[in-house]
Design a binder for these strands. Structure first.
Length: 614
RNA sequence: GGCUCCGUAGCUUAAUUGGAUAGAGCACCUGACUACGGAUCAGGAGGUUGGAGGUUCGAGUCCUCCCGGAGUCACCA
């Protein structure tokens, strides 16, 4: 809560004590920004006082209002509507506020909390390129990291690359069989896309193999023996695919053999694996760079997949985990999850066992207070189980673990499905939004005079702003529909709209010759539109606090939009450079300067850059 | 079926965590400066906040029960 609202709140509590001899809990003295349709800056809700004062809310409002005006310098006057006490803050308070913070880089930054927070926000598989779903994940993780830093925490950004397992082996088999030694250099293809192509090729060949197999006598026999009562041939073979892969498929056997050799440390297999993984990782790096994100620490599943043995032994000794033969499991029925397997009966590890081990390893390495996993909501129960196990084991960091679950990204046509080729590729998407921004810029011709590189830079910033803002403005919890045509919109509630407010201010500032900034505080006829802007600026730190507490960057995005909107209106309604007085001109310039600074700061927390022209 | 999440205008969404007449954008219609950048601004139309009860001075928000959608409940990751 900000300084002034806190002061008002304390004032209300003290007023209650002095006027009515009542002890009002601070929490019940609700202070909120006044709604637009009433006069005032802050509103104190009087209803909770009625019981204590045993008077009508209107009368209490009058009495408390008078008390506040005479005891707080900042409060100029008040009015009462029903049980709402609307308080008007003195102009001098606002003009001083702007003067104090116009160049204050610490505005919107909180003092160090001493808390160390680890944020894991990317965990891609190395068998195919990043797609739209990853983009939401990455943008969310990046911005929440920045917001947590602004809130005073020390943040360690991390990713875990899932670089081993049967999936990458499929790509490896396909490359070996049909690749003819293709490389990113020889094909001119980005490494992750090249490997992804082989993954797709494997699937295609496997489908063909499976279809052919269904015509064989062996398939006939399998169907006869294993199909359920009333199940058609088609239904049976659709459901049987995975088992076919594991029991009958030649390609499946080859991929499994590849995995076996990898696990056995076969040199040739490892060489191939390293080569293809490196291609993918370089591709990922490029995409990350285009998205403007980075990590402090990268983990690889190939290093961590066997972790967890130690912690599992402890769990067995403590009776938290149970063992049947080689299989290790845990009873999670208390949180509605039933039995969960941690080590399979063939002795191999699972995702859960890795995650147990990785959590402890990270804690030992960084000693974090909080660890946030930014992972899709389809894994909610996985994390519930994981955290529950760590709690039962008495791990010291268990209470600080948090799964930031975001909803899937759908297309207007429905869910993205890699099998149906409806996945939106990250690189393609980035290219598209930039192309769209370029198209708009060319139509407008505003930046046509600039050198090529400068134009490219601006167009890139605008396109990325459109894409990022479109994704981040939605509450992470919600499943979102990604309409490609809307995502490149540049008007209305969009990134470019916010940028435009900033650009307009830069344009004004360029034209403003040096003027006496000190005269700004002498301005004493604050207009409605000015007041509205100042109040919104004043809210900024609180917004960051809320976004950090809720792990929700959409608050910051919506704030930036609202601030930009208020500025556009202000810009339209009042002259700045040709203001009616020197004081007004000085104040409006300072006010605009601060709006620009806060807009840029807020957008920076979302990973969005501001152009100076557009 | 158990657990979890979601449901707000035709569409995409917000609501300061229980506060005033539910606020925006898109799309549609109508307007605006010989002006500091029109990627702008103003106005119109569009709502029984999925439904029904309940708690409260006050409910989109909390409780109960329904309806609809999604996810998950694997010796997958």
């Amino acid at each position: 809560m900000s300084e002034l609202t806190k002061k008002i709140q304390e004032g209300v509590v003290r007023a209650a004590a002095e006027l009515y001899g009542a002890e009002l809990p601070a929490k019940q003295a609700v202070i909120q920004p006044t709604r637009k349709d009433f006069e005032g800056d802050f509103t104190a809700v009087m209803f909770p006082l009625t019981r204590l004062a045993r008077k009508k809310p209107e009368q209490i409002g009058e009495e408390v209002g008078q008390w506040l005006v005479s005891h707080l310098d900042e409060i100029d006057r008040y009015n009462v509507v029903k049980g709402f006490l609307n308080l008007v803050v003195a102009d001098s308070y606002w003009t001083t506020f702007v003067q104090q913070h116009v160049a204050d880089a610490s505005f919107g930054r909180f003092p160090a909390t001493g808390q160390k927070v680890m944020v894991e926000y990317s965990s891609p598989n190395t068998n195919k390129p990043l797609h739209l779903g990853h983009i939401r994940n990455i943008l969310l993780g990046w911005s929440i990291s920045r917001i947590l830093e602004a809130a005073g925490h020390e943040v360690i950004k991390t990713q875990i690359i899932n670089d081993r397992g049967i999936a990458i082996c499929r790509s490896m088999v396909a490359w070996k069989r049909w690749g003819n030694g293709a490389t990113p250099e020889s094909t001119g293809k980005k490494g992750d896309h090249l490997v992804g192509d082989f993954y797709v090729l494997f699937s295609k060949k496997f489908e063909e193999e499976y279809a052919a197999w269904q015509q064989t006598e062996e398939a006939e026999r399998v169907f006869a023996e294993r199909h359920k009562e009333g199940q058609t041939r088609e239904e049976f073979f659709k459901a049987f695919k995975n088992r076919y892969f594991n029991e009958f498929s030649e390609l499946g056997a080859e991929a499994r053999e590849m995995l076996r050799r990898w696990e056995a440390g076969d040199e040739e297999t490892l060489r191939l694996w390293r080569m293809m993984n490196d291609w993918v990782l370089e591709g990922f790096e490029e995409t990350y760079r285009k998205l403007g994100v980075s990590f402090d620490k990268t983990y690889f599943e190939s290093d961590t997949w066997q972790l967890g043995k130690e912690i599992i032994e402890e769990g067995l000794a403590k009776g938290v985990l149970h063992k049947d033969g080689k299989r290790v499991w845990v009873d999670l029925s208390n949180i509605g999850l039933g039995e969960k397997t941690i080590i399979k009966s063939d002795g191999t590890s699972t995702y859960t066992s890795q995650d147990l081990g990785t959590a402890r390893m990270r804690y030992e390495e960084f000693g974090f207070h909080k660890m946030i996993y930014v992972v899709g909501d389809e894994q909610i129960s996985h994390f519930q189980g994981l955290f529950e196990i760590l709690r039962r084991l008495g791990e010291p960091y268990a209470e600080g673990l948090y799964h930031l679950a975001y909803g899937m990204v759908d297309l207007p046509t429905g869910r993205m499905k890699s099998r149906e080729g409806t996945v939106v590729d990250a690189d393609d998407l980035i290219e598209e939004v930039i192309a769209e921004a370029r198209k708009h810029a060319e139509e407008r011709g505003e930046i046509a005079e600039l050198p090529r590189e400068a134009q490219d830079d601006i167009v890139r910033k605008i396109g990325m702003a459109a894409l990022k803002f479109f994704i981040i403005k939605v509450n992470p919890r919600k499943r979102m529909t990604f309409d490609p045509s809307e995502s490149v919109d540049m008007q209305g509630q969009t990134g470019p709209y916010v940028q435009n407010a900033y650009v307009r201010i830069q344009s004004v500032l360029r034209k403003a010759d040096a003027c006496d900034a000190d005269r700004a505080t002498a301005y004493s006829a604050l207009q409605e539109g000015e007041r509205e802007l100042v109040k919104q600026l004043y809210q900024y730190p609180e917004i960051i606090e809320t976004a950090a507490r809720e792990y929700d960057p959409s608050h910051v995005a919506n704030y930036a939009y609202n601030l930009a909107r208020a500025f556009h209106k202000f810009y339209h309604d009042y002259p700045i450079l040709k203001a009616e007085s020197e004081e007004a001109r000085a104040f409006r310039l300072e006010l605009s300067r601060m709006v620009a600074r806060v807009l840029a700061d807020a957008m920076d927390l979302l990973g969005i850059e501001m152009p100076d022209r557009m």
